[in-house]
């Protein structure tokens, strides 16, 4: 026998103030990482603070050009929050020089494929990176 528990909904307010440039950048078609001005450590996704030397003096670096897919998956099961999708979706990680970026793709890509990155808003209003095959 089972009884139904009381419902509890979490909808978090996530503070992105220190990395606002990244989120604003997506709306302008730009993808940013950060580089520590003190030790040179590079971060993608960006960090406002350096985990290596503990400096908070960071420079924003635009990630652009041609990248290479280093791993990928096509998701056939939809997690809660992604019910709006009707078809399997591809998630890939691509390497652009010193930075790696995670993104969705409009077409199926495989490891080794050359891609460029664009940004777009999904049906739920969330901006993200999309890779397009070169």
């Amino acid at each position: 026998m089972f009884i139904e528990g009381r419902e509890l909904t979490y909808k978090h307010n996530i503070p992105v103030t220190k990395v606002e440039k990244y989120w604003k950048g997506l709306e302008e078609g730009k993808i940013y990482g950060t580089e520590c001005k003190n030790c040179g450590a590079k971060y993608s996704p960006p960090q406002a603070d350096c985990s290596v030397c503990y400096s908070s003096d960071m420079e924003w670096i635009e990630i652009s050009g041609e990248g290479e897919v280093v791993c990928m998956t096509e998701q056939y099961s939809f997690p809660a929050g992604f019910e709006f999708l009707n078809e399997p979706y591809v998630i890939a990680v691509a390497k652009f020089g010193d930075f790696k970026v995670i993104g969705w793709t409009k077409e199926k890509v495989f490891v080794g494929d050359k891609v460029v990155a664009e940004t777009e808003k999904d049906e739920t209003g969330v901006w993200k990176v999309y890779f397009k095959k070169v």
């Binding site: 990928m72 998701q75 998630i91 993200k128």
Partner: peptide, 15 residues
């Protein structure tokens, strides 16, 4: 952003 899942993370490694 991307709806990653636990099978998905291992699938990336498999790829």
């Amino acid at each position: 952003q991307y709806g990653t899942t636990f099978p998905g993370y291992y699938a990336m490694h498999a790829s």
